[in-house]
Design a protein around this nucleic acid. Structure first.
Lengths: 230, 230
DNA sequence: ATAGACCTATTGGTATGCCAGTGTCAATTT
DNA sequence: AAATTGACACTGGCATACCAATAGGTCTAT
């Protein structure tokens, strides 16, 4: 399968954004990209449109295109949904996982454990991804898995903040243990709860709080510039 | 705000697909669309790409673009996710709804009741949309609301099947009553459960069953043609 | 009759030029 | 000095032309 220039460009930009090489708010100059990749404006335009559709970049009409800058409020909302999707995956996985998948999940968990004990944060990050992906697969709902992966991608630029917290690595691992145990024993509600809180860290109380606070008009980023979308 | 040709084209096609004027599997001839709308290939291409991104159409390389034909298995998966999103909206709404929103919800429910008693199926369909949208709003999670609306759109071409069932209208109304009651009383778990089952009708048992059946290789639509995507 | 080798219309992808609307900045005016 | 105006460059959107790849059919030979 040969990939078009637009696709390669999209992937390259996506990768740059996700891995922080292009920071939120950074400008994406169309002409510069044309020159950089040696292509015309058409594929660049196409790639940008796809990235807009996936939420990674935004265009401010007549001002240019920028790496999406997500406000703290929307970020919380997205994490809330992410937690729900992960929880749903866990609930379904607890009911639907088969022996082979369970074995793969256990192995993924073990690799997480190895990485955690070694203190290798990058490695853990990667194995953690694989671990969660196992659960997506085990949900036996491909659409759900796709949505979860997509949202996770979109959140990736911001998750590094969350994951650099000291000791988070070890507590994350402990939570994984509970998750595996719940899935193993077919405890759907337990797996759902464990995964939801695993993602949300503190559960929904925090966002409840923020939500109620914002309703009193204390939002401090109302002037942050009109991030145009849809 | 002036809308571009590509946007108008996208909206027109989207509307056609959602309202069944273009059936799943139908071919979308690019040149015909160019002529029909009096534009060149560029905006047509753009519109098609956006529709692909939103899942309403698919392109089979070198064979053409078609209105997305969703298999029964994927359809079930999508409904499963839809139910979860609706349930989540209900759970959050039960905790976060304010007086004004509650009043709007009650009024929406009453309009549903009027439509139902009049036996006006189309009218009920519309008011039902509004009712659910109230709950989306009341979740105080704009991102969640957007995702829910988007998925609902995508499912719209197939929901007419589900809604034409005789007597479904009245039982739907009864379920609405329970939902309103749960939200009114702040019963988060109750609202979540009620909404989830409202969407799923029979709960997840059915899809569990299908999921397990499919694992035994009894899927009868394996030959349904390679629906290419991403 | 069937397998295999061309042939061609269609599709996908890209380059390029043009035009209109608008943000930006500077010059001019009061 | 502040404000108004005006020019210009930039951006977005569209049309058009060109090229490459291939699906699908046709033709040929065994």
């Amino acid at each position: 399968m040969k990939r078009s220039n637009a696709q390669r460009l999209r992937d390259a930009l996506e990768d740059d954004i996700i891995n922080g090489r292009r920071a939120p708010g950074e400008r994406l100059d169309a002409d510069a990209l044309c020159h950089e990749f040696g292509v015309s404006r058409t594929p660049v335009r196409e790639a940008v449109q796809q990235l807009v559709a996936s939420g990674l970049v935004t265009v401010s009409p007549k001002k240019g295109t920028f790496v999406a800058r997500i406000g703290i409020d929307e970020l919380i909302e997205m994490f809330e949904v992410m937690a729900e999707l992960e929880g749903m995956c866990g609930r379904l996985a607890a009911r639907r996982i088969d022996q082979a998948e369970l074995e793969v999940l256990r192995q993924a968990h073990e690799r997480c454990e190895v990485a955690a004990r070694a203190g290798d944060s990058d490695d853990y990050y990667y194995e953690n991804e694989a671990f969660h992906d196992c659960i997506y697969l085990a949900s036996h709902n491909g659409f759900l898995a796709g949505e979860a992966r997509q949202l996770k991608q979109r959140l990736k630029p911001y998750r590094r903040l969350q994951l650099q917290v000291r000791q988070r690595l070890m507590s994350s691992l402990e939570e994984h243990r509970d998750i595996v145990a719940a899935i193993e024993s077919g405890d759907a509600a337990g797996a759902e709860q464990a995964l939801r809180e695993h993602v949300l860290i503190q559960g929904e109380r925090f966002s409840d709080f923020v939500s109620s606070v914002r309703r009193f008009g204390l939002g401090r980023e109302a002037m942050d510039g009109g991030e145009a979308s849809r």
